[in-house]
């Protein structure tokens, strides 16, 4: 399985990346960890004439926790997330989710930026970014802009990112309260059959706010505002959890594939969300 020939670029700064992107348009693609793109190129499902390796671009990786805000450079790997003490304190859900992505070898290479920019509904980070209400920073020939993760995904492999833009970082507020990332998969290293990300806060036995997002159950990640609203103001008892699961089922739209028929996926989605809410509540 050898991919088609391409020209390889390894610029040292963002200007270098942008100049190749501008010159070659959609014949050019950036390469981060390569663990989504290279398999597609080997299968000749992705045709890339100009490959721009981001590994030497200065300032694109690293985790910065500054008071209440967290900024993760696009080239930060899943393994960096797992081993970051700062992030374990500021957003432990990132740690819990990263441990459920792929396998150790893939996590050394796969990056946060690649995972969120890829647009594959199977990727775990996009749903997580919905749950965290993250912001993506994009840099293009016309300068820098930010876009809300909840506005970024349009359809499978279609995002708000322009062909000539590079995603440089994801940012979100540090989290207090309960959290859980629960994923059903066929085996380690598999994409989700269904996954749920839950963040919630608790005061005097009452849930004061909740954010819920689902992965691989539609052609985009799904942030279910209604599911979160169903928990707010309750004591997160069985009735509230059922109401949240019911609301979530109204927002997802799974399709049948080799991970199972639609009814099974809806069942798996209900189970993972129920578990995630219970775990998040127990940690709140």
């Amino acid at each position: 399985m050898i991919p088609a020939a391409f020209e390889y670029h390894r610029p040292k700064d963002l200007e270098g990346v942008l100049s190749v992107l501008v010159e070659h348009g959609d014949d050019a693609r950036v390469l981060a960890g390569g663990h989504s793109l290279i398999p597609m190129m080997k299968l000749r499902m992705a045709d890339v004439e100009h490959l721009i390796d981001l590994q030497d671009v200065a300032g694109m990786s690293g985790i910065a926790v500054d008071g209440g805000s967290v900024r993760i450079g696009a080239m930060t790997t899943q393994n960096d997330i797992i081993t970051s003490d700062a992030l374990a304190g500021a957003a432990p859900i990132m740690h819990e989710a990263a441990l459920q992505i792929a396998d150790p070898q893939v996590r050394y290479m796969g990056t946060v930026g690649g995972n969120v920019a890829n647009g594959d509904p199977g990727n775990d980070m996009p749903g997580l970014m919905q749950c965290l209400d993250a912001t993506f920073t994009l840099v293009g020939p016309d300068g820098e802009r930010t876009v809300a993760a909840r506005e970024f995904y349009e359809a499978a492999y279609m995002t708000d990112r322009d062909d000539a833009e590079v995603l440089t970082a994801v940012s979100f507020a540090a989290q207090a309260g309960g959290y859980a990332y629960e994923k059903q998969k066929r085996k380690i290293g598999d994409y989700a059959t269904a996954a749920a990300a839950v963040l919630l806060t608790k005061e005097g036995g009452v849930c004061t706010s909740a954010s819920i997002a689902m992965t691989n159950l539609s052609d985009t990640p799904i942030w279910s505002e209604a599911a979160g609203a169903a928990l707010a103001g309750t004591s997160v008892d069985d009735a509230a959890i059922s109401a949240a699961v019911g609301a979530m089922l109204g927002d997802i739209d799974p399709t049948e594939d080799n991970r199972g028929p639609i009814e099974f996926k809806r069942h798996a989605a209900s189970v993972v969300l129920g578990r995630a809410i219970a775990r998040a509540w127990s940690r709140a």
């Binding site: 390894r10 390569g34 398999p39 393994n79 070898q105 893939v106 050394y108």
Partner: peptide, 28 residues
């Protein structure tokens, strides 16, 4: 040859990687 089995694992700059999923140019 599809990034799943790990038989091709090598250590590259301190990381365990599947060498069937790395271009030689990346390893320059």
């Amino acid at each position: 040859e599809t990034s799943h089995c790990g038989a091709c694992t090598v250590t590259l700059d301190g990381k365990s990687v599947k060498s069937c999923t790395v271009f030689v140019a990346q390893a320059d």
